[in-house]
Design a protein around this nucleic acid. Structure first.
Lengths: 214, 214
DNA sequence: GTAAGACTTGATCAATCATTCAAGTAGCTC
DNA sequence: GAGCTACTTGAATGATTGATCAAGTCTTAC
């Protein structure tokens, strides 16, 4: 399939434009011009504009590990710090663009108002995959976090804080809004880490067993 | 000015449609039809579609207290509970619409990608007013919260959690996503409330003055 | 070499978009 | 009732939209 070149060029170009201008504000002509492709070719590969969006979302989903997580986690092994390393990556994206562009999935998520089920499904799949990665970090943190903590819910809350922080940073055109959200999330994590040994996890450095206090 | 009727009808109708379908997906013709107004009248009051959006955002801003805060806080006096009462109001809006419609300001904030300065300013003004109201609650909570807590930042974090929670609830079509975010925020608040007397705030109910400790 | 399939070309389409404008009506002042 | 302003009417405009399609090129197989 030699034309994979054209197909992927369309997807990558659309990914960029949807990120910069949004889905609705990006015309098919914009994509065609930027990708140097004729309309017939686009409609040879994709039934319509929306299917191009689906392909973009699938590419985000497929590239989550290699394009986002692995670069963000290079040299970072501590599972808790990995979470904040990932947030730092979004911070860079904001800072590099003067707080214009944040999370592409989040932007698309709030842009789609019609009940486009296939689109919504893929947005949800992207969020779910992102949250799963955080969830794994929280599981890797083991007993450093309270035993009765709902880690799946906390993982989703990390996404919540990220998306909400990005939204405010973009609106205020101020990276400080994002930093403030991360700082509050960090404060929350620190209380959880402080709280964990109090509730359970009796021995952290000594090895000998000890009975629990009633 | 007897035509205030037409003018406000346009704004209210646009408010509704922008909320339901977004700004970009709402055509001027949609607004005209729903408001039963001819195009000439619209352009008599507003130079263009964007100015209608500005008027909508101004109406949100002006009605924040009477339309949002006061109804949400009826019967709720505790400043901390007022925060969660406000969040509960957004929850209702989501639940009532099957998680279709969330915060109208947040939706518009992520929809606007172009550097429309006047629009962005008004979105920011709405967020700022919302955050100010939360900030006042946090100030009213007095010594129940840690003395060295950055209350302005925490207030912004409440907005962060709300917007992020709404985004996920809409994407997953699941009110549980919003509830989870609120639950985590509540857990964070509880650690702060638990933490406060430990750090400072010696007497809570006695009245006599006392010098600050250095 | 030729037939078939994969892909490209670019003009063209109808629909929809925000906006304009000349003509009209209603209410007010003097 | 004349004149003025405020507002309404609704057809028309030109630009842009997503999508179509017949004709063409290229590659591969036999």
């Amino acid at each position: 399939m030699q034309s994979a070149d054209t197909r992927t060029r369309l997807i990558v170009t659309a990914m960029q434009l949807f990120w910069e201008k949004g889905y609705g504000s990006t015309s098919v002509a914009d994509v065609l011009q930027a990708a140097r492709v004729n309309s017939g070719s686009l409609y040879h590969f994709f039934p319509g504009k929306q299917d191009l969006l689906l392909a973009v979302l699938d590419m985000y989903h497929g590239g989550l590990r290699t394009m986002l997580l692995e670069p963000a986690w290079r040299g970072v092994t501590d599972p808790i710090e990995r979470i904040f390393a990932l947030l730092a990556r979004y911070r860079r994206s904001l800072a590099d663009t003067d707080c214009f562009y944040g999370c592409p999935i989040g932007s698309l998520a709030l842009e789609l108002h019609e009940p486009d089920q296939p689109v919504r499904e893929r947005l949800a799949a992207n969020f779910a995959a992102w949250t799963d990665a955080i969830h794994q970090c929280l599981k890797d943190a083991g007993s450093r976090l309270p035993r009765d903590l709902d880690r799946r819910e906390l993982a989703a809350f990390v996404l919540t804080a990220m998306e909400g922080g990005v939204m405010q940073a973009r609106t205020f055109r101020d990276i400080g809004s994002f930093d403030g959200a991360v700082r509050q999330l960090r404060a929350y994590f620190e209380t959880l880490l402080r709280e964990a040994p109090a509730r359970r996890a009796p021995r952290a450095r000594t090895v000998h067993k000890k009975k629990e206090r009633p």
